[in-house]
């Protein structure tokens, strides 16, 4: 854990992973999308609209996955007080929010032909909606504090409270839908997936996962670089005075120093 927690080492590791991950991501998306959109059979009831599933299911899965990563980052922020964990939490949240948004949008698009309505208060869709709100709250906390390390810890506390609540929310929403819609089209255990649709779905899941790795590592690197610039005094933090700005000499040094650090 502590070996990994060294930022310089982390950046070097990220630089080694990134090209591989990017290549893998590209390949997986190419084959996955081709298989999902062209090769795989259409549903006998839903027709081609079933293909939304190949985007919707991976996004919904990634929405959950990102929240878990966020909570793990929050846990390390609170326990080890390491800036790397702070950066990780801030890096992963917008990705999670985007996946959650994508899951909601595709769910709504898929719902129109399936249920005949853009939105149905189905248990899983509702849970994802609540997850969306949790992400918004997390990002709002990050935006509300001037002090970065305080923001990181406040957000970490919220992420942990959220992750403990997630199963409760999920359970209560399931409870609520069975109470109110006993005869829902969308059964609690979900529709059965034909075996022929599984390989492209798994490919897409893997593609989304590698896409996450690429974006996450990029955002981590950007976050670490921003942190370093701020520490060196180049990027004025909100409270910094004008007279404390760097001089010319400092600025010249900065470019080389940052390069070395990275």
């Amino acid at each position: 854990m502590h070996w990994f927690a060294n930022p310089a080492r982390f950046v070097r590791l990220a630089d080694r992973i990134l090209p591989v991950a990017m290549l893998l991501c590209f390949g997986l998306f190419a084959t996955g999308l081709y298989w999902a959109l062209i090769l795989s059979p259409a549903d006998y009831q839903q027709g081609s609209s079933v293909r939304i599933m190949y985007v919707h299911v991976p996004s919904a899965y990634m929405a959950m996955f990102c929240y878990l990563v966020m909570a793990a980052a929050g846990f390390s922020t609170l326990v080890w007080r390491h800036p790397l964990a702070d950066v990780a939490g801030k890096a992963v949240a917008p990705i999670g929010l985007a996946f959650t948004g994508l899951a909601l949008a595709t769910g709504s698009l898929w719902g129109k032909p399936m249920w005949g309505a853009w939105w149905v208060w189905d248990a899983r869709l509702t849970s994802v909606l609540v997850l969306f709100f949790l992400y918004l709250g997390y990002l709002a906390i990050w935006g509300a504090f001037d002090d970065r390390s305080k923001a990181a810890r406040a957000a970490a506390i919220l992420a942990l409270v959220g992750v403990i609540n997630l199963p409760i929310i999920k359970f209560s929403v399931d409870w609520w839908t069975t109470l109110h819609q006993p005869a829902s089209l969308f059964r609690a255990d979900g529709p059965r997936i034909d075996p022929s649709m599984r390989p492209p779905l798994y490919l897409m899941l893997a593609a989304f996962q590698t896409y996450f790795v690429v974006i996450f590592l990029w955002r981590m690197k950007a976050g670490l670089a921003a942190l370093k610039l701020q520490a060196l005094g180049a990027m004025p933090s909100p409270k910094q005075n004008h007279e404390q700005r760097h001089d010319q000499h400092h600025e010249q040094n900065l470019a080389t120093r940052t390069e070395e650090a990275l």
């Binding site: 310089a8 800036p83 520490a231 060196l232 005094g233």
Partner: peptide, 14 residues
Amino acid sequence: FDAPAFQSPLFEDG
């Protein structure tokens, strides 16, 4: 004035 703003683990190299 010219001292590094803080010694964070970020500056450790390893």
